[in-house]
């Protein structure tokens, strides 16, 4: 994992504040088309299970309650980037290092967060 996650809203926090959902590499398929059941099976059940750099959905349950995409290494446990899930297209890994991603602004319509002045300043 990582012991510490640099939440874009709250700053560096310990992992026990977070809930981990899992793989964030795939986009939710639609309901129309010939291959939809295959796509859905793939989306819900199949995992790349990468040995190395991976992206996961983490929820900052004990903090800003924002869903984040944490990019990290499954062998070294290094964290490369943390970004709000709402600002990210699934399937693309960002090349932004962790420190910079903290400065990334969340989109205006990401409305549920009680964004504190502290969170904005970060």
């Amino acid at each position: 994992m990582a012991y510490l996650i640099n939440c874009p809203h709250c700053g560096q926090r310990t992992t026990d504040e977070f809930y981990i959902k899992g793989d964030a590499s795939k986009q939710r398929p639609g309901t129309i088309g010939d291959d939809t059941m295959n796509q859905w099976h793939d989306y819900v059940h199949i995992r790349d299970n990468v040995r190395g750099r991976t992206a996961e959905h983490w929820h900052h349950t004990g903090g800003c309650r924002q869903w984040l995409v944490v990019e990290r290494d499954t062998v070294s446990h290094e964290v490369y980037a943390v970004a709000p899930a709402s600002s990210r297209t699934p399937g693309k890994t960002s090349a932004t290092p962790a420190r910079k991603s903290a400065a990334r602004k969340t989109p205006a319509r990401n409305t549920t967060s009680r964004k504190t002045a502290r969170g904005e300043k970060k």
Binding site: Y3, T14, I20, G22, T74, V75, H77
Partner: peptide
């Protein structure tokens, strides 16, 4: 969390 590291953390 996904890991191949054969070690865990303190929490």
């Amino acid at each position: 969390y996904n890991s191949y590291a054969q070690r865990g953390n303190l929490p």
